[in-house]
Amino acid sequence: MQDKLDELHMDVLKELGNIGAGNATTALSQMLNRSIMMRVPEVKVVELKDVSAILGGEENMVAGILVKISGDINGIMMYVLEYESVRIMLNILLNKNITSEDELCEMDLSALKEIGNILTGSYLTALSKLTNLTMIQSIPKLAFDMAGAILSVPAILFGKTGDSVLFIKTDFNEGDCDVVGYYILIPELQSFDKIMKSLGVV
């Protein structure tokens, strides 16, 4: 078992990020029955202390959708969106016109969870197919809070293995609407080794 991720492993995770986000776009298009475009995902390895700055500062309001992964692989996956992107996404999805002053209703929140479910699910399906490993995801949990607080969860989990976090930035657009979100995938160390082995990387 290694103590930290080396460059080769990061490259593999990056490629998985590309494939996963591609799958997620297809899933989103099908659900909305509209053509959704995706920019090439940006995969970054970020120092823990700079994590929140990416999301507009520690106190910026974000939504975090978190699923636990079990099966052959154990870990968590989180999808994070800035509040502005949440609004745009819901407006597209539910055909609504939520403005920045509006509070989100129960229906908005469950729609958001469902989006998270689809986005994380399609990513994990891609990963599962590629590795031949079973990955079962839990029902998604949603939290709205300051970016620093939401990100403390993955930062802590990842912090057990090192001082950097892996972020996959995805940018979906539909017409003029841009939805920017971030995937954070954190497999447990043993699970990470399993993924690497099944891909013939170790």
């Binding site: 202390k49 929140s52 520690e58 106190e59 620093g148 607080a149 990100l151 403390s152 001082d163």
Partner: peptide
């Protein structure tokens, strides 16, 4: 995050967006 420091009177010391 994962940091510490000190401040003297009359200063203020802060950390933003604490979660877990």
């Amino acid at each position: 995050m994962a940091d510490f420091n000190i401040v003297k009177n009359p200063g203020m010391i802060t950390t933003l967006g604490l979660g877990s």
